[in-house]
């Protein structure tokens, strides 16, 4: 069964269609690259998956569980919405680390707050927090930042901040990790370290949806590619096909612009 199934997603902002009839599916352990020019709807699609935008219509399910269905008008309680949200992790273009917390605290904060909802919380607090801490340290180690645990975001470079943000998103073990142009806000010499981390996630079969402008990277790292233009999926397929042998005129033109 597909881990992620999106069907018939539509979204418009004040009358302008931003997504029209977008649908795709993703298997566990696969990574999907979404490419397309700015304003094509890629980011809106990610924001819909993370419930930062409400689609006008369509359906999203994760591992067979429907997490969004526009035909179901019953209100979802906040607690349930938060639980559904946790299926997804999101790494923002502009990192959005919490400036008043250290790298380690950025990674542990959400976990510690969620631990309060654990039935054994007050009693097992120390034990739960120790687990969360240990997990966070391991994650920061895996993104190469074990020496920066106590650093505040403003003391880190953009690439380091983005790696903390990746660790933060991974800390809650989402089923699907989404990246919204993770290197677009970085100086060119800093993109490499972030891409390396994402590549290693792909090789360890983390399920990912990656919106990116790095075509070479998308081609290497993804199992599937979707090209979006004007809010609709124009072309989809294996990276070799979409990049090597695009069928649609619009895809060809887009790729030419990016390889040139």
């Amino acid at each position: 069964m597909a881990i992620l199934e999106v069907t018939g997603l539509n979204k418009s902002f004040s009358g302008t269609a931003v997504l029209s009839d977008v649908g795709f599916s993703l298997e566990k352990g696969e990574s999907l690259a979404i490419i397309g020019s700015s304003g094509s709807g890629k980011t809106t699609l990610l924001r819909c998956l993370n419930f930062l935008e409400l689609p006008d219509s369509g359906k999203i399910s994760v591992a067979g569980e429907t997490v969004f269905d526009s035909s179901d008008r019953s209100a979802v309680p906040e607690r349930e919405l938060r639980r559904r949200r946790l299926h997804f992790g999101l790494v923002f273009q502009s990192f959005n680390l919490f400036p008043q917390y250290t790298a380690l605290e950025n990674v542990t904060l959400a976990g510690r707050l969620l631990a309060r909802e654990n039935p054994g919380y007050p009693r097992r607090r120390a034990e739960l927090f120790a687990e969360i801490d240990e997990n966070a340290r391991a994650l920061l180690d895996s993104v190469g930042l074990i020496s920066k645990l106590g650093a505040y975001p403003h003391e880190l470079s953009g690439g380091q901040q983005q790696r903390v943000a990746i660790a933060r998103a991974l800390a809650l073990s989402p089923d699907i990790l989404c990246f919204d142009e993770p290197t677009s806000a970085l100086d060119p010499e800093l993109t490499g370290e972030v891409l390396r981390v994402i590549r290693s996630l792909a090789s360890s079969h983390t399920t990912m949806v990656i919106v990116t402008h790095e075509m070479q990277f998308a081609r290497e790292v993804s199992d599937k590619v979707i090209f979006i233009d004007g809010g609709a999926i124009v072309e989809r397929g294996a990276p070799e096909d979409v990049f090597g042998n695009p069928r649609h005129e619009r895809t060809k033109r887009f790729l030419e612009r990016y390889s040139g």
């Binding site: 993370n50 419930f51 930062l52 906040e78 938060r82 639980r83 949200r85 946790l86 997804f88 992790g89 999101l90 923002f92 502009s94 959005n96 680390l97 919490f98 400036p99 008043q100 904060l109 959400a110 707050l113 969620l114 933060r168 998103a169 809650l172």
Partner: peptide, 24 residues
């Protein structure tokens, strides 16, 4: 983005206000 980062990490609005926004 601070608010949105809190949301995608499963925090409640109250938690976001007190743990993230307030001190800033």
């Amino acid at each position: 983005g601070q608010y949105e980062a809190g949301l995608v990490l499963g925090m409640t609005k109250t938690q976001i206000f007190f743990k993230i926004t307030l001190l800033q």
